[in-house]
Design a protein around this nucleic acid. Structure first.
Length: 921
RNA sequence: GGGCGAUUAGCUCAGGGGUAGAGCGCCACGUUGACAUCGUGGAGGUCGGCGGUUCGAAACCACCAUCGCCCACCA
């Protein structure tokens, strides 16, 4: 076989098949067998750069499922897409512009957006290449981008319909404002982190008289915007204050003391400053009491003119310091204490967000949430694992209106126009030429864009052509399963369910398979700023240390982290990362995709699975070498032949089951176990005596050759979804020997269990052979006998069945177990001193003379005996208890009794054997 | 303040009311015509703690501890 090198080299094979598959059109959805459609829509990766290893996991799991279903005959569609990821992408491009010393504002909106499109082309290309390297069998001809024409039309259609229905409204409300990104954020886009802060206690003197209220605050700078102080109406301490005024320090404004039940009497002094323009609660209280909203912090995070000349233009955190100083100087600061509080920050740039009152667009969400909750309750959408449903319910039942407008440039522009003449606001499907009310032509389009998740929410149907009633939409909606990680259940999954139900009148998918998040070896979440990200391509192709270092420290927001990241990287990958190949990476992902939440990525495992690919490769070389000249004469199948088919059959059954329950880890485990430990370790070894022996007939040889081909060919198909490249490469060589003429394994049927392969008789017979050989090996291994030395073996107390099997499998025992001879002892024959293995009631004896250290054998048997005694003790302990015998199921009791009896038998046989050895001294 | 998850061999993780598992690592032996990216054998765990249910718990229940995560307007 000069064609197949001794070692599997993934690089070339993967490159070759990656290209061929795409050319062949095998990835395209097609009704090939009349089975129903099976659809997965990809969670669209952001066009912010390259995919990290978490994406690679997500992609791999989907590809495994889609390849499985495609082979299984379904009309399998995997929709590829990328997401414009508004803020994230805008930040990336802004940063690149900064490197060129260009400010986005100087460039202007139009030019800036052009630059983003350029970036999108580059980044989108990188991503698609990464996907292809992983073997992702997306239907590439259908590839979409959230901002392409069709999807943008869908966005607009949805926006306008919701507006017409009154489910979208514009208004001035409290929102989260990112002073760096200069945009509103939805509640979800704000991350809360506990931070060390302070609580300042400040005197607010009453306007009349010498009394005062003590106010506690964590944000003194907002006091400049206070328009009231609130106390609880039932608070005896302050009843007399209600309706009076206090003088707001520094600002020297009079503000009223109001009563509101929101105030917690127990907390602090029981008096609360009210800043309706900069605190969500105060905003609500302010609405209740008709309070003025004074916006003292401007959109860029500096103090506004309304904060007074002294502070205007000063950064909000600087102003905080200055205000505290001033209060202290004026004797108005009572005390300061340390205080931990959860501070919100922008999920993209981590700037601390400012609660701000602002004119924004909102989606009225409750009417959409209700049916979405019901869909999950009724099981029309099922989460896997199921406990994620709790999280979904929790959020959906407390959901608040969704702020969807963003003050940035990159994204779907809101289709609303304001007439300069009459002020009419129009929300339209088509760009208007004139005002619908006054006919004026001075129309100004809304500058805001939509939350990126607005378009993602439509993804399952917008990508299939909606609002057109396309054939694709009819065929593939609702999709089958959504594969994603838990962190976007709210952002994306919930919103897709809501929008799908609203606009398609059906759920967008039936199942949501939630997989874990990949963490690094220390359990840390992978992130660019931690410098612990891994590029899937670096695992596939390998990377040297210098390149890896360069990748990890370039484009870092915080330079001071560089040395630490460098040191950690050098320590963990002193020689860079070797090339493992895509199959090894995929198999690793599959085997790590357990039900838990986190996945610690462990290089040890990927190395093991690279070896697995090599093992399969070499097993295949063996099969190919031994099946070169097939002929179609008579065949006779050995027990081993029947056994391996029976084992294969069981493996196929379990793989189907594991795929159905999304336990790809178990599917990987089952195939790994079969391939390595049954097919390679046993069957290939058992096939050698047959193929190499002069004694075996041509029919027997044909039987074994045929089985080798049949098992391997089936196994390749079974493994293909997990490790597509290496299986395809081998399969192409092997297929002609299996009389299969086809271009690709990808479209071959996925193996099905066959009744004809079931064979429990062969399984128990082979079990005997294997136990026999294992016994001999154990003696060999523990007695330090060379594996090459053939051993004479004597059988004592053999049953008829034992005799039968020993004769029938003499050849296997000789070649695989390396026995020199196997002789039966009759009942009255006294065996020579021997090393012993037990096989049921039979003793397998290896005469010691000249071979074995008697003392060592005695020690070995004694040790074994102690182990068995411990087990027997436990077993008897159970059987001696009447409670057990009376209450446990009869079946269990019987089994336990049998077990005890067997242990007793084995112990006594060992004892006799030990005694014999002792008598030799 | 609510909620979720995890805790099993040195490491990474499966499992699951009746005999404690895998891979890697470790020790010993071994270049037999698929594979040294390998083979054979071996060592290694009172399954986080304390109770409860049960004939029987590592598994089920309650509580606790540790770690991780999500949600949350107590200033």
């Amino acid at each position: 076989m000069d064609k197949l090198p001794k070692q599997y080299e993934p690089a070339e094979v993967e490159k070759k098949w990656g290209a061929k598959w795409i050319e062949s059109g095998a990835f395209a959805a097609a009704d090939r067998s009349g089975k129903p459609p099976y659809t997965i829509v990809i969670p669209p990766p952001n066009v912010t750069g390259a995919l990290h290893i978490g994406h690679a996991l997500n992609i791999t799991l989907q590809d495994i499922l889609i390849r499985y279903k495609r082979m299984d005959g379904f009309n399998a569609l995997w929709m590829p897409c990328t997401d414009h990821a508004f803020i994230a992408t805008q930040i990336v491009v802004e940063r690149r512009l900064m490197e060129e010393k260009i400010d986005r504002r100087e460039l202007g909106r139009e030019k800036f957006v052009e630059r983003v499109w350029e970036w999108k082309a580059e980044s989108g290309g990188t991503i698609v290449n990464q996907l292809k390297s992983l073997g992702a069998s997306c239907d590439w001809d259908r590839e979409r981008f959230t901002m392409d024409e069709g999807l943008s039309r869908a966005v607009r259609e949805v926006f306008v319909s919701l507006y017409e229905e009154g489910l979208i409204y514009k208004g001035e409300y409290m929102i989260n404002w990112c002073p760096r990104c200069h945009t509103a954020l939805s509640d979800l886009e704000v991350e809360h982190h506990e931070r060390d802060g302070h609580m300042w206690h400040i005197r607010y003197p009453l306007a009349d008289g010498d009394k005062e209220l003590i106010i506690a605050t964590t944000r003194p700078e907002t006091m400049l915007g206070d328009t009231a102080v609130a106390v609880h109406p039932d608070d005896g301490r302050y009843k007399s204050f209600i309706g009076k005024s206090v003088v707001l320090p520094i600002a020297n404004r009079k503000i009223p003391v109001i009563a509101d039940e929101y105030v917690d009497m127990e907390f602090g002094s029981g008096a609360l400053k009210i800043t309706p323009a900069h605190d969500p609660n105060d905003f609500i209280i302010g609405e209740r009491h008709g309070l003025e909203r004074i916006k003292v912090i401007a959109d860029d995070g500096t103090m506004s003119l309304k904060a007074g000349e002294r502070y205007a233009g000063e950064d909000r955190f600087e102003a905080r310091k200055d205000i505290v100083k001033k209060l202290e100087a004026d004797g108005l600061l009572v005390r300061v204490e340390g205080h931990m509080s959860a501070v919100g920050s922008c999920y993209r740039c981590h700037t601390i967000v400012e609660p701000n009152v602002s004119m924004q667009w909102f989606v009225k969400i409750a009417p959409l949430a209700e049916p979405a909750i019901k869909a999950v309750e009724e099981g029309r959408v099922r989460f896997i694992p199921g406990h994620w449903e709790n999280l979904y319910y929790e959020w959906m039942r407390n959901i608040r209106d969704w702020c969807v407008s963003r003050q940035i440039w990159w994204g779907h522009r809101i289709p609303a126009w304001t007439c300069g003449g009459c002020g009419e606001i129009m929300v339209l499907r088509e760009d208007p030429a004139e005002c619908s009310k006054c006919g004026g032509s001075e129309l100004e389009q809304e500058t805001d864009v939509l939350d990126t998740w607005f378009s993602s929410a439509l993804w399952p149907f917008s990508t299939l052509g909606w609002p057109e009633k396309t054939e694709a939409l009819k065929t593939f909606y609702p999709t089958s399963v959504l594969v994603t990680s838990f962190d976007i259940i709210f952002f994306w999954v919930a919103r897709m369910i809501m929008m799908g139900l609203k606009f398609m009148d059906d759920v967008p998918f039936h199942e949501v398979y939630i997989h874990g998040l990949i963490r690094d070896q220390d359990g840390q979440k992978m992130s660019k700023s931690k410098g612990n990200v891994l590029d899937p391509l670096d695992l596939i192709d390998g990377v040297d240390l210098d390149t890896l270092l360069e990748k990890r420290v370039s484009g870092l927001m915080q330079d001071h982290l560089k040395p630490r990241i460098e040191a950690a990287t050098r320590k963990q990958y002193p020689d860079g990362i070797p090339a493992y190949g895509a199959d090894a990476l995929r198999f690793t992902f599959a085997s790590l995709a357990t039900t838990g939440r986190d996945i610690r990525f462990d290089l040890g495992r990927i190395e093991g699975y690279k070896n697995f690919c090599n093992k399969l490769w070499n097993a295949s070389r063996y099969v190919l070498m031994n099946t070169e000249n097939p002929d179609d004469g008579d065949t006779q199948f050995s027990t081993a032949d029947r056994w391996i088919l029976a084992r294969l059959n069981r493996t196929i059954e379990s793989v189907h089951q594991h795929f159905a329950t999304y336990r790809l880890d178990l599917a990987a485990q089952a195939t790994h176990e079969f391939t390595w430990h049954e097919f390679c370790d046993w069957y290939l070894e058992l096939s050698k005596p047959v193929l190499q022996s002069e004694q075996s007939s041509d029919a027997e040889k044909r039987g074994t050759r045929k089985t080798l081909i049949e098992v391997l060919e089936t196994l390749l198909r079974l493994l293909h979804p997990l490790i597509p490249f290496v299986t395809e490469e081998i399969w192409r060589e092997l297929a002609p020997r299996a009389m299969i003429d086809a271009e690709t394994i990808m479209l071959q049927p996925f193996p099905q269990p066959l009744e004809a392969w079931q064979d429990s008789e062969a399984e128990s017979e082979m079990n005997w052979v294997m136990q026999f050989i294992l016994g001999i090996r154990q003696i060999r291994g523990e007695m330090d006998i060379s594996p090459r030395k053939p051993l004479p073996v004597l059988l004592q107390n053999a049953s008829d069945n034992d005799r039968d099997l020993a004769v029938r499998h003499e050849e296997l025992l000789a070649k695989v177990g390396r026995t020199e001879s196997v002789r039966l002892l009759s009942a009255d024959q006294e065996p020579p001193p021997s090393a012993t293995a037990l096989l049921g009631e039979m003793r397998v004896l290896v005469p010691l003379e000249g071979i074995i250290d008697i003392e060592a054998e005695r020690a070995r048997l004694t040790k074994k005996q102690i182990g068995l005694r411990t087990d027997l003790g436990k077993s008897r302990g159970k059987l001696d208890k009447p409670d057990f015998v009376n209450n446990a199921p009869a079946e269990v009791v019987t089994k336990e009794k049998e077990r005890a009896r067997e242990l007793e038998g084995q112990i006594s046989k060992l004892r006799e054997q030990i005694e014999k050895l002792e008598n030799l001294d």
